[in-house]
Design a protein around this nucleic acid. Structure first.
Lengths: 223, 223
DNA sequence: ACCTGAACACCGTTCAAGT
DNA sequence: ACCTGAACACCGTTCAAGT
């Protein structure tokens, strides 16, 4: 656990290098392995040296989150339809999440207001406006879209969704028929989910839901 | 920071008391304040005593999550329509989340397979079956519902949604018109969101989306 | 069985130096 | 300005006792 490479003693440190190294550490060993001391030893430096570039561990985490969020590709107002752009945005976020699964919980729970996040919302708003929604509907539809995409990726990466482990299958099969009749009947379909298809199903429902509310012309009074 | 009350020296400890006290601590001061040492001192006991009832801190967290998840009310197969039951289930989860906001991140990210969670899914499956979806659609619709509800509550409690603070409003107003035209135009609507209405809007879209896929009779090939 | 007490290998952060 | 070094107040967990 000495220094990672042959970094020189001075001037080699920078906020960028610190963030990149921290992200690598999180990707490799998880957020719980990221500590100021561990990160410092990885950089071949004393823990206290980090505080010249980053005021606290919380700020370090915030910095990593920003770096990752910036990787989400924002669709420009090009030739594609608003449906295609929303779908591309959703897929891009999910892709970035899969590239950094161990950071995802912090990624979705940070109340950030960075320009990157506004760019994310601008793309959402712009597509939903083209869909024909009014101002109030755009805001609500955007949070629906945002909530679904973040909720789904978090669930799949946490292991709540997806193909079951052997132990989980056994748990499922041992549930009493009387209390869990539908679950028991669905067992084969539950263990055989395709997460990509499942994700797209949700996007389909949302996109046609947005089209329907736009057609209806006014807020959705359907019950 | 001595003992909380006049608890006797022996036989007063129990797994249940430990979990309840830990939950109170998390609710009051946040997950980052929960430590085995702090919890022990709260109970007037040595840290190591806890290990007779709980094998590790991870198991402690898992226990608290189970206690909270058990508070979600599962709608029985009563007189209500499937729409009303799904809505009730969604609202109940959101209500429990609001009662323990500081635990929510762990609540949604735990890949638990407790009977309680199966009860949650059984209620979802049962309602979606009554809606007329086939087996594959039920599974997909249930994860859509689950993802939206958890994603939304997490976003609102993290502060990503909801009425803006003064600082956030200023940030928003200072965004350049050229890069964020739609965001700037929507500013008044963004800062004035009603989260309850926003949540229900999403539920409405999902419920009518489920009804539409059921009518169509087959998986959704709408583009 | 249930709790104490000491110990080990860690934390984040502050503060006073050194160069 | 940038890094060291020591220090402070914490961590989770193990292990050998005590009762």
């Amino acid at each position: 656990m000495k220094k990672a490479g042959g970094e020189g003693k001075r001037g080699m440190l920078s906020r960028c290098l610190i963030l990149e190294t921290a992200l690598r550490l999180v990707d490799a060993e998880g957020v719980e392995s990221l500590s100021m001391r561990r990160l410092a030893s990885e950089l071949g430096v004393f823990p206290t040296a980090l505080y010249h570039y980053v005021p606290s561990k919380a700020a370090l985490m915030r910095g990593i989150v920003e770096v990752v969020l910036a990787k989400v590709e924002l669709p420009g107002r090009d030739g594609r339809t608003w449906q295609e752009r929303l779908r591309a945005l959703a897929r891009s976020f999910r892709g970035v999440a899969h590239a950094h699964p161990r950071l995802l919980p912090q990624l979705v729970a940070y109340p950030e207001a960075t320009p990157e996040e506004y760019g994310f919302y601008e793309a959402l708003y712009e597509a939903l406006e083209e869909a024909g929604l009014d101002a109030a509907e755009i805001v609500r539809a955007s949070t629906l879209m945002f909530s679904y995409v973040t909720g789904f990726t978090l669930a799949e990466i946490s292991g709540t969704l997806g193909p079951l482990t052997k132990a989980e299958r056994e748990d499922l099969v041992s549930l009493p028929h009387e209390k869990f009749p539908v679950t028991r009947r669905l067992t084969p379909h539950i263990s055989g989910v395709d997460l990509d298809e499942n994700f797209e199903f949700g996007i389909n429902v949302l996109l046609s839901g947005f089209a329907a509310t736009a057609e209806r012309g006014v807020g959705s009074p359907q019950q």
